[in-house]
Simulated scan of single mutants.
Amino acid sequence: MTSQFTPEQTKAIYNHNHDILVSASAGSGKTTVLIKRVIEMILADTSVKELLIVTFTEAAANEMKQRLISAIKDELKVNPTPELKEQLLLCEDANISTLHAFCLQVIKRFHYVIDQDRSFSLLTDDVQQQLLKEQTFDSVKKPLL
């Protein structure tokens, strides 16, 4: 039912065959719109395996995955098809993550293409901050000439 959505949200849900970017303030319904769009795509025979859904925080990614699972369960109540049941099972391994986690996955998988050592690791914010402090203090300790 589209009556609960604004015209812009309805466009984001139902206009397919191209990528979209939804940018709006907190609490404006972005996740609801995205989940509805995904449900519509699944009902039109797109598999959850074919989708990449990225966000900026782990909390948001986890919430999206849980809301997608809930939405599929709700849809199953009115449309209990084997295909939809399969999509529910596929949600556990769906590509719903942070942008950083997705990029890390790509680098780990294709490290050899960019000549990256397979055993690389990411800096945590704390480690990065410590390294920057050390670098700054080292540069201050060195004579200018």
Rank of each mutant, 00 (worst) to 15 (best):
A12V: 11
Q135P: 00
I20E: 08
Y14G: 00
T124K: 09
E58I: 10
I72N: 12
V78N: 13
D74L: 11
T31V: 10
D19Q: 09
F110A: 00
K133M: 05
A12Q: 07
K30W: 05
T57K: 00
F56E: 09
I20M: 12
K141C: 07
I96R: 08
R109P: 01
L123I: 03
F137E: 09
K73L: 12
A61G: 12
S139M: 00
Q129T: 14
K77F: 10
E83P: 00
I35T: 15
R118C: 01
T32H: 09
L132A: 03
T98E: 02
V33D: 02
Q4C: 09
P80M: 07
H111I: 03
Q105P: 00
K133N: 05
V106R: 05
Q130S: 10
T6N: 13
D125W: 06
E134G: 10
T55I: 08
D19M: 02
K36F: 00
A101N: 01
T55K: 08
D138S: 12
D74C: 04
L84F: 12
L132I: 08
V140W: 10
T2H: 06
D45K: 09
E86V: 14
M41T: 10
V38L: 14
L90Q: 08
K30E: 05
K36M: 02
I20F: 15
F137G: 01
T81C: 04
Y14E: 03
S121R: 10
S28L: 02
K108S: 08
L88D: 01
Q130L: 09
H18F: 09
V48Q: 13
A71N: 02
K73S: 14
I13M: 03
C103A: 10
E134M: 11
L76F: 00
Y112I: 01
D45I: 04
S3E: 15
V140L: 15
D93S: 02
L122R: 10
K142M: 13
G27D: 14
I35A: 14
H111F: 11
P7G: 00
T10R: 15
L90F: 04
K11C: 06
E86Y: 11
K77G: 04
V48L: 14
K85D: 03
L99T: 01
K133L: 07
D93V: 01
L145A: 13
T124A: 06
E86S: 14
K36R: 13
H18L: 02
H16E: 04
